[in-house]
């Protein structure tokens, strides 16, 4: 009887674990064969001209840090220093939205010289955000003389949708785009004690985009078709 109960508990727990997970879809498209040179740098900037959403600073930092680390680390310019050194031309209301506007901006001699002094060849524009798309369930907690405890199941689903568009400042053109759509479902079962099993789609989007950006910037023939995975 005890064994049967244990099996039942394990089955329920595994069922709950199965409900928690991250699904990743990444679509890279590269329009040219350019790769980053040894002395060239890249900078990751958030698109901030939307009124409703903007890429969070933490994912910009996450991608920048990961690109700059490891055995095959790239030269990554600090995004805040880049925006400060080129102030006011990369402020939310002033930043070029198209490569035509970029070309116009770089006709200004002082701006061009400043860009050249940073050594940045590629700007990665990160657009998108992480939002909660659904949530449900419920947990009740109670306390008494004999003790306290919770019972129930709560869940929520977050979507991380980002575009990383790579601009080549030397060719004054867009080198391509990597699109990432990551959804993650978190669950919190409570049987006396609530146990949060949290999915982190933003971190998964950061990992996926970093991996793809590294290949994008170092492999000439990279980027055709979607990549889908589930964890």
């Amino acid at each position: 009887m005890n064994t049967a109960k244990l099996f039942l508990l394990v089955a329920v727990f595994l069922g709950i674990l199965g409900g928690c997970g991250v699904t990743t879809r990444i679509e890279p498209y590269k329009q040219s064969d350019v790769v980053v040179g040894q002395d060239e740098s890249i900078v990751v900037l958030a698109r901030k001209h939307h009124s409703s959403h903007e890429a969070e600073q933490r994912i910009v930092d996450c991608i920048s840090d990961r690109l700059a680390s490891g055995d095959d680390a790239l030269n990554v310019y600090n995004n805040i220093e880049f925006e400060d050194e080129l102030y006011p031309w990369f402020e939310p209301s002033m930043a070029p939205v198209t490569t035509v506007e970029l070309s116009e901006l770089l006709t200004r001699e002082n701006v061009l010289n400043q860009v050249l002094s940073t050594g940045v060849r590629f700007v990665v524009w990160l657009d998108g955000s992480t939002t909660r798309v659904a949530s449900g369930g419920g947990i009740s907690c109670a306390a008494g003389v004999g003790g306290a405890g919770c019972l129930g199941l709560g869940w929520w689903e977050d979507d991380s949708i980002y575009d990383a568009t790579v601009w080549d400042l030397q060719e004054l053109s867009s080198a391509g785009t990597i699109y990432a759509d990551v959804s993650g479902r978190s669950v919190m079962p409570a049987l006396v004690i609530p146990i949060p099993l949290i999915a982190r789609p933003q971190l998964a989007a950061c990992r996926g985009l970093t991996q793809q950006l590294r290949q994008f910037l170092t492999s000439p023939g990279y980027g055709n078709g979607p990549i889908t995975s589930s964890e």
Binding site: Y87, P88, E91, P92, S93
Partner: peptide
């Protein structure tokens, strides 16, 4: 304030 500065300067 940076936006204000950007508008004034440009």
């Amino acid at each position: 304030m940076r936006e204000v500065g950007a508008t004034i300067s440009t």
